[in-house]
Every structure is written in structure tokens, then in C-alpha cells.
Amino acid sequence: MLEIKNLKAQIEDKTILNGVNLKVNKGEVHAIMGPNGSGKSTLSSVIAGNEDYEVSSGSITYEGDDLLEMAPEERSHRGLFLSFQYPVEIPGLSVSNFIKTAINEKRKAFGQENINAKELLQLFKEKCELLNIDKEYLSRSLNEGFSGGEKKRNEIFQMAMMEPKLSILDETDSGLDIDALKIVANGVNSLKSSSNSIILITHYQRLLNYIVPDFVHILKDGKIVMSGDKSLAQKLEKEGYSFLN
């Protein structure tokens, strides 16, 4: 589904990714862990198409096509989803209108009619229940005045509504208390299927107790320095990143 080859990226003149290689197949869950400043968020930004970062070499192929050639919205239409570490607040734009428009923009890209109101309502109802969200929250302004946890839950709510093929969850666990973490993890697990894939970016092993990865990669100084199964995360938790040295 996604193949990253020797990816190098920089912001302004500072190189952050220094030859990343990663292959994600359908139905797989990958966790990317690493110390602060190792390039985890840069990797997710580059995959999503943030133009602040410049790709200096390497390639990303998504479903056989050159992902780096696609505009961010096209990547989204093709089924890519980034759960932001710091979701933006948009006062004056309601959660429901935001999600409805996102769904319709995708449908428009494929020449489909707008989603009908009944279908949308049903979808909202279903996904609200899944993530234990009060329906009243749909009429609030997007992320405005939301707590850190609410913002993260809103990201996963959007993910649930948009049913992406490849989701990248950038530190979705940070800012969540243990109850919220369980709800979010349950949500993500129930969205998981043999046809979609997930990349989890996280500092801590904690999240991986709830969303069990097939592969764990350690990113350091802009490179994946070690890959393994879920036991690698446990080892990290016990010994810290110092064992890498």
C-alpha cells in the first residue's frame, strides 16, 4: 500500500529525514517510535503533503502511484488520513459542517453526488456511539475550546467518518487520560480491517497495549535504525532509548 524509499526531507535548510525506508502492506499496523526530535512528526507531515517540508530525495509510492506528486487533498481523496498531533481550531465552522464538506469534497472528486442527509445523520449517530461522543458536540465550532483529549478524540471521530485506507496517528495518545485512551483505542481497533492500514506514531508503549502493532520501528536522527515486532516496544519501555547507543 505504502512504500517509502530512502526518503530525505528538510525544513528550511535543516535536514530532518535522512534516508527513511518503510513498507506498509494492507491490513498491517506499524508503530513508529523514537526520541524527541528524531523526525517522527516530519515523516507524517511529509506523507500528508505539508508543503513546509521539502523532499530532497527518495520516493513515496502509494497504491503504486507517486504520492509526492499529489496535492494534500488528492491524498485524502485517495484514502490517506493524518490524525494531527496538534489539530487546529476553527472558530465559526462546526464539526458537522466540516466533516460533511470533507466527505462531499471526496465524493465530488470521484464524480459522485453529495451524501444525502439521512445517510449522513445515520453515520454521525453510529460513529458518535462508537467514540462515546455526545451528539451536541457536532454543532460546536471545530476544536474551539476543546480540551487536548477532546481534540484527539475528534481526530479519530473524523477518521471513523471518512473511513480511510491508510491512517497515520501522530501522537494520538498524548494528552489523553486512561479512560479516553481506551475509548480512542477501541474506536481505532473497530475501524481496523484487512483492507486498511495504520501507522502509529508515539513516544510511549502505553498506546500499544491497546492497539497492538504488527511491526515496531525505531526512528533516530531521521532514519529507521531498528525494526521488530511488538516486543521491541516493551524493550524500549524498560530500557529507554539509551539502549540504541
Binding site: N50, L82, F84, A102
Partner: peptide, 10 residues
């Protein structure tokens, strides 16, 4: 960028 990454055209 946030909105474009959700599929909104610019």
C-alpha cells in the same frame, strides 16, 4: 493545510 489534508480543495 489541515483542511486540505481532509480533502478540501484549496
Amino acid at each position: 493545510f489541515y483542511m486540505r489534508s481532509r480533502g478540501f480543495s484549496e
